[in-house]
Amino acid sequence: MSSQDPFDSALDLLRRLSPKNITNNLSTLVALSPELTEDLLSAIDVPLQISRCKKTGRDYLLCDYNRDSDSYRSPWSNEFDPPLEDGTVPSDRVRQLEIRANEAFDVYRELYYEGGVSSVYFWNLDDGFAGVVLFKKSVEGAAGVKGTWDSIHVFEAVDRARIAHYKLTSTVILNLVSESGSLGELDLSGNMTRQTEQDLTVENDDSHIPNIGRLVEEMELKMRNLLQEVYFGKAKDIVGDLRSVGSLSEAQKERSVHAEMISKMAGGSK
Results as ranks from 00 to 15, higher is better:
Phe155Gly: 01
Asp39Thr: 15
His208Val: 02
Ser244Arg: 10
Val120Gln: 00
Leu40His: 03
Ser118Arg: 02
Glu185Asp: 02
Asn25Glu: 09
Lys222His: 08
Gly131Val: 03
Asp70Arg: 08
Tyr121Ala: 00
Arg243Gly: 04
Ala10Met: 12
Ile173Val: 00
Pro47Thr: 08
Val94Ser: 04
Leu40Glu: 03
Val107Ala: 09
His165Pro: 00
Gly116Ser: 04
Ile212Pro: 01
Asn24Arg: 10
Ile50Gly: 07
Lys264Gln: 11
Val158Ile: 12
Pro82Trp: 07
Gln96Ser: 14
Thr88Leu: 13
Asp59Met: 06
Met219Gly: 02
Thr201Tyr: 15
Asp12Glu: 15
Glu260Pro: 04
Val30Ala: 02
Leu36Ile: 12
Ser77Asn: 01
Ala157Gly: 10
Val230Trp: 10
Asn24Lys: 10
Met265Lys: 10
Val172Ile: 07
Val154Gln: 04
Gly115Leu: 06
Tyr231Lys: 11
Tyr113Gly: 12
Ala259Gln: 13
Asn78Met: 10
Ser249Leu: 08
Thr201Ile: 15
Phe7Gln: 03
Leu186Ser: 09
Tyr231Leu: 14
Asp5Gly: 11
Gln252Lys: 14
Asp150Thr: 01
Ser269Ala: 15
Ser118Ile: 00
Asn21Thr: 14
Ala10Trp: 10
Pro90Ser: 09
Ile212Gly: 01
Asp45Ser: 13
Pro34Phe: 01
Thr56Trp: 08
Glu156Tyr: 03
Gly240Cys: 09
Val216Ser: 01
Leu134Asn: 02
